[in-house]
């Protein structure tokens, strides 16, 4: 049987009929979403609505129970063979994941390494970049997030906002085609939120494709190209942020926005 022709330029993310349960709770109940290159998509919704789970399915930290996620036309965790999806080898999964950057709510920097070592670990160990070249690239990235002076500090010596900016630089060091942000400012003191959002705004302006789970409505309104509102594991409303946030059509969206705005 001839292979069907592959699209030359597939969307960066294509999610079809995505289902995921944790025990008896069905967190995702059939998500369909396509994201193009250069888009900045904000996922909005109450806690428990499935935003983070959906994000974690994109880089295969969670495995779908039904449906699939394609990133750049590939299944991150599987290969199609003989009409079935076979689990991919760990090295394949690692290689595909390395093209997807992720930033966590709790930063998850490696506390036993300096900032510079945090940023160079993956380029040196996964991409086999020479140490000197990796360090030069890391210093450029740290400058970009405004932390070139902190290269030799340990994460524990930095504020939350600084740690999150290092985490962004660490993810960018792998030159990802896509960046995922899982509530990147939710663990920060209010006065530190701005510096992280500024870095994310610059990143969006540079053309990076970003999927951001956030409660920062100002950021979603000003930076996102699309806002997607989830409720009970389903997308209930999506569109330009000024429309979804400014003039929501769905009752659930209105009720949620009334609480957070």
């Amino acid at each position: 049987m001839p292979e069907p022709a592959l699209r030359a330029d597939p969307p960066i993310v294509e999610i079809r009929d995505l289902h995921k349960s944790f025990g008896p709770i069905e967190v995702l109940q059939g998500i369909d979403l396509t994201i193009g290159r250069g888009e900045v998509v904000c996922l909005l919704g109450a806690s428990g609505s499935g935003k983070s789970t959906m994000l974690r399915c994109i880089n295969h930290l969670e495995q779908p129970d039904r449906g699939f996620v394609l990133v750049d036309g590939m299944l991150v965790g599987g290969n199609v063979r003989d009409g079935r999806v076979h689990e991919a080898a760990p090295t394949e999964v690692a290689e595909r994941r390395s093209r997807i950057g992720m930033v966590f709510q709790q930063f998850n920097l490696f506390p036993h390494m300096t900032v510079l070592d945090n940023v160079t670990l993956a380029p040196v160990r996964v991409k086999r970049v020479g140490r000197a070249a990796a360090q030069a690239a890391a210093r450029t990235l740290l400058e970009r997030v405004g932390l070139s002076a902190k290269a030799d500090a340990y994460p524990g010596q930095l504020s939350g906002g600084q740690q999150q900016r290092v985490a962004i630089a660490r993810a960018l060091a792998m030159e990802p085609a896509l960046m995922l942000f899982d509530e990147p400012t939710s663990a920060l003191d209010p006065e530190l939120v701005g510096e992280v959002l500024d870095v994310m705004r610059d990143l969006a302006a540079s053309g990076m494709t970003m999927i951001v789970v956030t409660h920062e409505m100002g950021f979603a309104r000003n930076v996102a190209t699309r806002a997607v509102f989830l409720d009970d594991g389903l997308i209930v409303e999506q569109g330009p942020p000024e429309q979804v946030i400014g003039a929501p059509t769905h009752d659930r969206t209105r009720a949620f926005l009334a609480k957070v705005l």
């Binding site: 930290l61 090295t91 994941r97 036993h112 670990l121 993956a122 160990r125 996964v126 993810a171």
Partner: peptide, 24 residues
């Protein structure tokens, strides 16, 4: 979260253990 961060950076099982988990 340390394992997850290492995984999202593309580190394999052995590398995650050696560079991230064991030292801590």
């Amino acid at each position: 979260g340390q394992t997850e961060a290492a995984r999202t950076l593309g580190l394999g099982h052995a590398e995650t253990l050696r560079f991230v988990i064991l030292p801590q």
